[in-house]
Amino acid sequence: MAVLHNRISRKELKERILLDQTPRTTISFYSYFKIEEPKVFRDKLYKDFTALGVLGRIYLAQEGVNAQISIPTANVDAFRTYLYAIEPLNGLRLNIAVDDDGKSFYVLDIKVRNKIVADGIDDPLFDMANKGRYVNAEQFNALTNDPDTVVIDMRNHYEFEVGHFENAIEIPSDTFREQLPMAADMMDADKNKNIIMYCTGGIRCEKASAYMLHKGFKNVFHLEGGIINYVNQVKEQGLGNKFHGKNFVFDQRLGERVTEEIISCCHQCGKPADTHVNCVNDSCHLLFIQCDECKEKMEGTCSKECKDFIHLPEEEQKALRSGIDKGRNVFNKAKSRLKDLKTD
């Protein structure tokens, strides 16, 4: 019987990938379509993806699939052929990473969820089939030259902070489920304007566009393939680029360089910086922006307390870590701790 889950420690798998010289390509894709038996579909994908050398994070639900993966470059064509043989996925757009070192993932995780994007929507009349109109990079640039166009960023603060489109509106919330009603409320007085929604790869803004139409907005668009596809199209077609900074991504890279501009600051010293890191203290792992100087000074930690902690004997660290639930520990979820990030 085939093994349908990983049995090797993640630490070992990460070390293997870091040493492996095999060229790999990072790809993301999603599709909203009906999956009758997500668990059965999940097990088949795990077996077949493993055979192709796929690593990454894939979520399945009855509403569809959401995937960020890495695959040996030599297997990309075979992977595309496999995926396109699944009828609802035939011709699916695959977003190729903009700035890729081949080390984005080191394990294959395929999980069944209630939804591929947690949205908090419980209205039975909501229908993903009624979604906004796609715009490509050229159309996006043209529409955003119109003063009656509003661009809405449907990503989290830590994504927006390091890079975003010109004049984009940030929805000030920590979760997508909170952002949806907030976006509708914020735009209530502008229901006749063109509204373009965007996100990293398209999955959130596609659902957001359907939500806005559900709430009575008329001229709703969403950026096809998100920032990743936009940047690739801009490069391929020689278009003007309206995205500035870095595109945050949810893998080991934590970001793709789009332009050389650094539009954010180190959370510890305030100098220009846009490198996200996780605090090296295993009982913290706070996600924050840290410049090279602070990284050296603070030894990769986010605070004096964490710096002191990593110098404790290992057994004492383990005892203190016991029972701690870090949750989704990111700097915007811990604003009260921002003062603690400042270095002396």
Score class of each variant (00 low, 15 high):
312 L>V: 06
310 I>P: 02
1 M>N: 09
265 C>G: 05
311 H>V: 06
79 F>L: 10
157 H>I: 08
290 Q>V: 05
65 V>N: 06
29 F>W: 12
71 I>L: 11
7 R>T: 13
197 M>V: 14
16 R>I: 14
343 T>H: 01
99 D>K: 15
71 I>T: 11
243 F>C: 03
48 D>L: 04
151 V>Y: 10
105 F>L: 03
108 L>A: 06
341 L>R: 02
63 E>V: 10
263 I>M: 05
47 K>C: 02
102 G>V: 10
276 H>N: 12
183 A>H: 08
199 C>M: 04
253 R>I: 09
227 I>F: 05
62 Q>T: 13
94 L>N: 11
118 A>V: 08
26 T>I: 06
139 Q>L: 03
54 V>I: 15
86 I>V: 14
183 A>I: 12
72 P>I: 11
2 A>K: 14
176 F>K: 06
287 L>Q: 13
96 I>E: 09
53 G>W: 14
266 C>I: 10
44 K>Q: 10
219 N>C: 01
300 G>T: 10
8 I>E: 09
181 P>D: 02
319 A>P: 01
64 G>K: 13
220 V>Q: 07
138 E>S: 12
214 H>G: 04
24 R>Q: 10
265 C>W: 08
276 H>G: 03
283 S>H: 03
99 D>V: 09
330 V>L: 03
56 G>M: 05
180 L>K: 01
67 A>Q: 13
71 I>A: 04
92 L>G: 02
95 N>A: 14
205 C>K: 04
126 F>K: 07
153 D>N: 12
263 I>S: 07
170 E>I: 07
110 I>Q: 09
139 Q>N: 01
70 S>C: 10
264 S>D: 14
227 I>M: 04
242 K>A: 04
306 C>R: 13
210 A>N: 05
189 A>I: 08
339 K>S: 05
27 I>Q: 08
135 V>C: 04
123 D>L: 08
146 D>E: 05
